[in-house]
């Protein structure tokens, strides 16, 4: 894929947000909140940062790989995959419907191009990404493996098993990002299960940690990812603490956990779409 410039990335992000809202609205189910919050990150990865081939090969040899551990934000991933040519944008119409390849949570079972492992049950993606990264090392493949996790997901014990392992085995071709929106289904993470000092925890586990303070500003997201990339290959896995706002881009959805897994009504959709420019053509 060709590297897109900042201006174009911003445009793509607007379209991706429209796709997310329209997909979730059409089936009246799905997770718009964190999908909207992670839009800049996904667009930056797929349209600027990663070397990847939309003809899709499961092994992904000599490509950068991306794994989504918090699988419920599938709408943003499906939109970005479709918009980068893995499958037709039209297919987004089938999201969460019977006989679709676009399952509620990402899956390989139906053969959707771009998906390499099922996710949805939280806490597993970092292990998978670490395994993939290590296999790349054995194969002499110098590309990078990316994984995104939720911040609520940090409450799963397996995350820390993988964190310990990746540092111990010096898996330094791995960039893990945490969507740090401070929200989870039942409320703010601080109230549900306080994550305390997440940065200090990852540092203590032996990772190189960077923070992207403005995860919904494309220039900052790119800068963060460039910085993370520059830290690879130095003996430590890299963690990118990406500060985002859930529901970003739609004024009545932003900053609350309430839109974690709720679909907008007809009226709310019209209102939301009015705030987001159609840049690549709606499907």
């Amino acid at each position: 894929m060709e590297k897109q410039p900042l201006e174009q990335l911003t445009k793509i992000s607007s379209q991706v947000r429209r796709d997310i809202l329209r997909m979730v609205h059409a089936v009246q189910s799905g997770h718009p909140g964190a999908s909207l919050g992670c839009t800049e990150f996904f667009v930056a990865l797929y349209f600027n940062q990663m070397k990847h081939d939309n003809k899709f090969n499961m092994d992904g040899a000599n490509e950068d790989l991306f794994f989504l551990s918090n699988g419920h934000i599938s709408p943003v991933w499906y939109s970005v995959l479709a918009r980068s040519g893995y499958f037709s944008a039209e297919e987004m119409k089938t999201f969460r419907k019977l006989d679709s390849r676009l399952q509620g949570h990402p899956a390989t079972e139906e053969g959707l191009p771009g998906i390499r492992i099922a996710s949805g049950s939280l806490g597993q993606g970092l292990s998978v990404a670490t395994g993939a990264a290590q296999a790349k090392k054995i194969n002499g493949d110098d590309r990078t493996v990316y994984v995104l996790m939720g911040d609520g997901e940090q409450q799963e014990g397996q995350v820390w098993e993988a964190a310990m392992y990746a540092a111990h085995h010096k898996v330094d071709n791995l960039i893990a990002t945490i969507d740090f929106n401070r929200q989870q289904i039942d409320g703010p993470t601080k109230e549900v299960m306080d994550l305390q000092d997440l940065k200090a925890k990852w540092v203590a586990f032996g990772w190189e940690v960077i923070e992207t303070k403005q995860g919904n500003d494309m220039a900052s997201v790119l800068e963060g990812l460039e910085k993370a990339k520059a830290l690879t290959g130095k003996g430590k896995p890299v963690l990118n603490l990406l500060h985002t706002e859930m529901g970003f881009g739609v004024d009545f959805m932003v900053g609350t956990h309430k839109w974690h897994g709720i679909a907008p009504s007809d009226e709310q959709l019209a209102n939301a779409l009015g705030q987001l420019e159609e840049t690549l053509g709606d499907y």
Binding site: M58, G125, V128, G131, A132, I138, E161
Partner: peptide, 13 residues
């Protein structure tokens, strides 16, 4: 748990 995830990831390459 991590071991199973690692193994799954390794198959991808």
């Amino acid at each position: 748990a991590n071991m199973i995830g690692l193994a799954a990831g390794m198959t991808i390459n």
